[in-house]
């Protein structure tokens, strides 16, 4: 019963390219890549670690696939795997010193270390192309299908999105996911009942980086060119806005956030340079008026609808 909505949405996604123009197919590709990124980000927020380096790990995946595909001619299946793995390994290296920090310290520390990684791409013209980045990243070719066209690539990204989200969802509802939330709720208690807090935080960070890396691989092959600016703190701020708008309390929050903010972003396209102002305004409105994000609003609505049919629903309403 509870899977009806996800399956209905999935079915809708299968037929979507038939119904919309090519421009919107491209938008949907970006939307799905952003979904992977935002959902991967939520994983680390569940243990209380708000990282400011998440899009840098997207960049690690993008640069890895670009290097492997361009210079070594590796096939897509190999580069997507290595893109994710490279991101996970660098994630482990980055998180190691960060495990001594939490909260605000982690926030700032992750930004600093993320910038460190990003500046390597800026400073080294070989092989990363310096500030202008890398161009001529090969398009994906698998057997006879040419993924240069938007629609085939749309389906490729759809497969990855479903797989990544399914894995992240399974982690979220597993004991491991619960343990991460437990660490956030009460770290001292968690330690004293035998939870290795540092190991779990490192694991969450690395897995999260893995999926951000995969999002980066998918992005790099679509854009054909990447540069360090794609993965700077500006992009990170958008990611933060998505998850603040959607909320991180449930798995669906960031997904709602990406959907709503991308619709607003498309609608606000004519506003051009005023858009950052609009997004900043939205961020402030949500932080002050709806800190739980849109998901908290939906949960309240569901409660209201479920109350009448509920046996325990006759509690006094205050």
């Amino acid at each position: 019963m509870k899977y009806i909505i996800p399956f209905a949405i999935l079915a809708g996604f299968l037929f979507l390219p038939e119904m919309i123009g090519e421009y919107y197919v491209e938008v949907m590709i970006l939307f799905m890549i952003n979904l992977i990124l935002a959902s991967s980000f939520r994983l680390i927020t569940t243990c209380g670690d708000w990282s400011l380096s998440q899009v840098v790990f997207m960049g690690v995946g993008a640069y890895t696939t670009a290097l492997l595909a361009k210079f070594f001619g590796w096939p897509f299946w190999a580069t997507v795997l290595f893109g994710g793995l490279a991101s996970a390994v660098i994630g482990l290296a980055v998180v190691f010193p960060l495990l001594r920090t939490k909260g605000f310290g982690f926030f700032i520390g992750s930004f600093a270390l993320g910038e460190f990684v990003r500046l390597i791409w800026v400073k080294f013209h070989f092989p990363f192309g310096g500030p202008r980045g890398m161009i001529g990243i090969p398009t994906v070719e698998l057997s006879d299908i040419d993924f240069y066209e938007a629609t085939p690539y749309y389906y490729l990204v759809l497969i990855f999105t479903v797989a990544c989200l399914a894995i992240l969802y399974r982690i979220d509802i597993s004991r491991t996911g619960k343990v991460l939330k437990a660490i956030y709720a009460d770290e001292d208690l968690s330690k004293c009942i035998g939870i290795n807090v540092a190991r779990h935080r490192a694991m969450a960070f690395s897995v999260s980086a893995f999926f951000a890396g995969i999002a980066g691989v998918l992005l790099a092959h679509r854009l054909g060119a990447i540069d360090p600016k794609n993965f700077d703190v500006n992009t990170m701020v958008y990611l933060v806005i998505w998850v603040v708008v959607g909320g991180v309390g449930t798995f669906w929050g960031p997904i709602i956030g990406v959907a709503v903010m991308m619709i607003i972003g498309e609608a606000a396209r004519p506003l051009a340079e005023w858009r950052p102002l609009l997004f900043g305004g939205i961020l402030i409105v949500f932080l002050t008026l709806l800190p739980g994000g849109l998901e908290s609003l939906l949960l309240k609505l569901r409660e209201m609808f479920e109350k009448p049919g509920n046996d325990e629903g006759n509690q006094p309403i205050d």
Binding site: R170, S174, R175, T176, K178, A182, I195, V207
Partner: peptide, 18 residues
């Protein structure tokens, strides 16, 4: 209480997913 069973769990990432 079930979080308290952490030490008696053998779950790893792989088994969490699959």
């Amino acid at each position: 209480v079930n979080i308290g069973r952490h030490l008696h769990s053998r779950e790893n990432l792989f088994s969490a997913v699959f």
